[in-house]
Design a binder for these strands. Sequence first.
DNA 1: CGGAATCGTCGAAGCGTTTCGACGAAGCGT
DNA 2: ACGCTTCGTCGAAACGCTTCGACGATTCCG
Lengths: 352, 352
Amino acid sequence: MATMHDVARLARVSVSTVSYVLTGTRPISQATRDKVLAAMAELDYQPNAMARGLASRRSRILGLLMPMDERGLGATETAFVTGAAAAASAAGYHLVLSPVGGGDLDDLRRLASQRMLDGVVLMEVQLADQRVTVLREAGVPLVLIGRTGDTSGLSYVDIDFEQTVREAVAHLVGLGHRSIVYVNHSAATLASGYGPALRTRDAFVAAMTAHGLEPVMIPAEDSAAGGRAALAAAFAQAPELTAVLAMNETAIFGILGELTGRGLSVPDDVSVVSMVTSPQVAELATPALTAMTSPGSALGRIAIEALLRHLDGAGDERHQQLLPCALETRGSTAVPRRPAPDAPGRPPIGGG
Amino acid sequence: MATMHDVARLARVSVSTVSYVLTGTRPISQATRDKVLAAMAELDYQPNAMARGLASRRSRILGLLMPMDERGLGATETAFVTGAAAAASAAGYHLVLSPVGGGDLDDLRRLASQRMLDGVVLMEVQLADQRVTVLREAGVPLVLIGRTGDTSGLSYVDIDFEQTVREAVAHLVGLGHRSIVYVNHSAATLASGYGPALRTRDAFVAAMTAHGLEPVMIPAEDSAAGGRAALAAAFAQAPELTAVLAMNETAIFGILGELTGRGLSVPDDVSVVSMVTSPQVAELATPALTAMTSPGSALGRIAIEALLRHLDGAGDERHQQLLPCALETRGSTAVPRRPAPDAPGRPPIGGG
DNA sequence: CGGAATCGTCGAAGCGTTTCGACGAAGCGT
DNA sequence: ACGCTTCGTCGAAACGCTTCGACGATTCCG
């Protein structure tokens, strides 16, 4: 493995000159630069990452901290990752994904203190996320995908849940639905302070109230069985329901199965909208789901770009940005067949 | 940030002594060790990963190369990752996941040549995988999850597709099914040399032939639509089919949808077995799928352990191991309702 | 009881970069 | 033609750790 010394010798220049060619820190004449580049090519030289990291005190490695449970990564999260990886690679950084769970706080502390990561992006952020504290103490620049409860002094990019829910509700109300149930994540998830679950809950209440409608929310376990149970609960609580809005990518398949089981058809009897969903998942269902499509890779890219700005950055201005999901109408929503309960016999279109 | 120097000064020993305490390379008296450990604790010392890597020429970082397409990671792949991460962490190594796709061969070459990875585990291996060549040239120890066509000199751990298919077919034949269609990945995937698709194809032909049955294989795009199309093709090619064996986790939902659409019930009209599937995914469907459950995290763990053995290892003996998937019977398989075509009127159980 | 092996520790030489200060050579305005 | 920047290059000192050789102090064996 060739070192910088070898290159310098072959090119008949000093080691520092080679370094300047590589980093661009100081001006180098074209003639010298060419000599050096030729030597590098001939020796197939690759800088040693460790040495570079030690000397420059920058590893050129960015971490993407991504808790991994056994459920796997949804297409949505995967899009964050690929977006982030592309952005990092474009800037000459490596992006490493670290499957550190919430429990491995000591692991994280170690990782951060070892000066191996120039900065990190945090995924799956809780409202009160210990990892933020640990990383700040360790002095590691960080950007969140998601938000903690108190975002002061923090950079983040997140989905605009308020607007997303508002649009989803507006879509259903626009079709004439009056009884809409929101199937959220589980009660335990809500209690644990999972931001998206809490924010969509509040946004749903607000949006429904704004339309003069009664907001009904049902928590569901992240499983098909949870979805089935949630739908049963929904019918118990709101027998006249004609639409389901679901946040829970896993439960939604149970919901669909249970609807079929009850002899109800989608979308004629019940419309279904899936929130924060990738097209791939939406197409899995039959009929394909009308969904709020997540901004996907853009979130990852923006997070990395903000992080890089922090690293180079003189200023410590914070990047705080919300992106809405876009409504994509597919086959799971339609005008309700059953009349709205509070306006029997009225024409199905134009309600709201 | 405290350095080893600070620790040494505080403990009144030399820097090398501190290093020996840390690495255990040489014997240290209990008294000295205690002094040093106390000093480290007091200063909250954490070794600098870059410096350590430079001096020792070992980064203590293992890479898990994991092409990420937009479909996301299935629960199966996620299990590999968590298994590998746990094993690496237990051995004091970091595991970084690198989403390098097949196209980024230069990226990979750079990564490998920068001496940043002590070794790598490759996922989603193709029969002719360029990445193997690149890594071998770069002299990076590697272990595969999956197999190339020519495995000589290579360490790998993979699913035993032959046995898995044999068991799946035996299960269906045991129930009395005679006309079984195998829905594989797409023709393009087969053509690209994706090992699991090819191996299961051959294994299916072998297993069916052994039972004296006609093997029918249908390729399907990795989408619900692909699954629907494949089922249509299957009925065209084998109208009397009573069972579907599916490799394609994505297409299977389309298959189920299409069956329902045709008024056929699972499992009474058609039995369905899903191959290399995690319990979580199997439970998504209604009814839950009888599936060949993948060995999951064990694969990841074994791969890392083999890799670590290579690193420490004097011997360069290769680790080559196959693990079968286990049959888990759920609600999607049953005795066929329709009589087997070549034995009209015979009792449904006991065929095969 | 003497020489050899072992134990515990130290100092110093790297590991392969970056980066700082220095310095001759050009280029500038006057 | 004069000092003054700017340009292009060099040598050397870090960066924080591991590891090698050395060496006094024990311990062991015959």
